[in-house]
Design a protein around this nucleic acid. Structure first.
Lengths: 254, 254
DNA sequence: CGGTACTTTGAGGCCACTCAATCAGTGTGG
DNA sequence: CCACACTGATTGAGTGGCCTCAAAGTACCG
């Protein structure tokens, strides 16, 4: 836990010290709300349980969050991972209950905005609405991609896809450098993300590293050596995927 | 194909003859747009391919749609099924391209609203925005539920969940009666929805019917005999699920 | 009545799972 | 400082659920 926090803090120059960076040019009212509601959470904190009542919208300023669901037998599926710049509206069809569990994967700074306040902000500012719409569309796109792989792809393909998705998303917000980045995930968690057992995640990653496609050291420091082959295994077109899951230039929208 | 159309037409008293029913009390501007843009599509029509440019929002007035994605090898995953009253905004992060393929599962009446017009409508009317937000939240909830099962649940559980989800959704809009309803899906399609091969869908359904839990006749006329046991297999709480995936009383919102 | 689309059942194989043991790294208390 | 606990990664062995291939059965339709 604290190891994760330390890792993230080490990236502080990217997210930590400029927590408002993803929203640098945000309209002043929006920015003010984010500042006023920003709070820090330790790695592993549960913000919301399935079925909790749901009074807030979360805007991720730094760090990583996971949205997950569980079966009665304890099996867990991470439904989406959210990185800085993301918005989480945990409401389900009846907006008063939450359909997923939300927890931090690393130390994270999050603006916890009360629903009423978020509604006011959103009603008052069309650019906030536009930004939220784009964020939601991106989330739907990447969930669709992941569903496709959960249903139909091999373990190798699922892992390759996850590595590529997170690489693209991190690059877009200035995390990592080139094809090198750190994931604040254990193999267990990566398994919950890809629908695999932790044992099989291990074997699959080993196969990829032995094939020279990637390197992995020190609890998920990833280097992608041959992203084209990896993209081929993942069955994605990098440019197409980028346009579908990456919200370009937050600053331009807001 | 035409068999499906015929089946749906047979339900005409529910959706067919009163295509505007799901939006009966919609604000006049909204209702006018739906009427002006309503079009009929035969079963099996592809409205949108992955990667197509994306100039419209679809509002389903009657019939069923599927949103799907495919791998290079042809394997397909149905990412979501949309029933009357649903809104489909096929935009991805960059709103000009479409991340999924959209096609009709039955004869369907759909309001195809140009993006610009939809934006105008949405900007002008907060209740339209609220309705779209609820629809989106419901879609996210059910996708989350399905992802959980794709990743972690047995074939039996996935099928049971799909039957229950669609039963609840149909009941909510007055389709079927009690626990009896018709699905305009082949076993192949149901497999694409649940991440199973059509062969295994067959075996699994057979097991459920032999167990007396459900009946299935005549190309997916479903009767759920023991919904409690089915819910147990699907690992859901019916009431909780309903609140998470069902948009209550469309008419009240609009 | 042949053609087509879908369902059903059998046989066999493989991928990913579970169980289990070992190893490595890190923090902790004596 | 070291023994210990604890968490996570790694590897082996064995199993089983779901897949693929294949063939036959059924319903519908021109």
């Amino acid at each position: 836990m604290d190891a994760n926090a330390a890792n993230l803090t080490a990236q502080g120059d990217v997210f930590g010290n400029r927590w408002e960076a993803p929203f640098g040019r945000a309209s002043t009212a929006f920015e003010r709300v984010l500042r006023a509601n920003g709070r820090g959470f330790r790695a592993g904190t549960t913000l919301k349980l399935e079925g909790d009542d749901n009074g807030a919208v979360y805007v991720v300023l730094s760090g990583w969050l996971a949205m997950s669901k569980s079966l009665a037998n304890g099996a867990r599926q991470i439904v989406d991972i959210v990185v800085p710049g993301g918005i989480i509206d945990p409401s389900s069809a009846q907006s008063d209950i939450c359909a997923v569990q939300i927890e931090t994967l690393s130390y994270a700074r999050i603006a916890v905005v009360a629903r009423a306040e978020w509604m006011r902000l959103s009603e008052a500012d069309a650019s906030v609405r536009r930004f939220q719409a784009m964020t939601t569309a991106a989330a739907l796109s990447r969930m669709s991609e992941r569903m496709l792989r959960l249903g139909k792809a091999s373990a190798e393909s699922r892992i390759a896809y996850a590595l590529i998705e997170l690489c693209l998303r991190l690059s877009a917000i200035g995390g990592g450098s080139g094809n090198t980045y750190h994931l604040p995930l254990t193999q267990q968690r990566l398994g919950e993300y890809t629908g695999l057992s932790s044992v099989h995640v291990c074997r699959t990653i080993r196969r990829l590293t032995r094939g020279g496609l990637i390197d992995m050291s020190d609890h998920m420091d990833i280097v992608i050596h041959d992203i084209d082959v990896l993209a081929c295994i993942a069955d994605v077109d990098l440019e197409v995927l980028r346009r579908q899951i990456i919200v370009e230039s937050t600053a331009t929208v807001l």
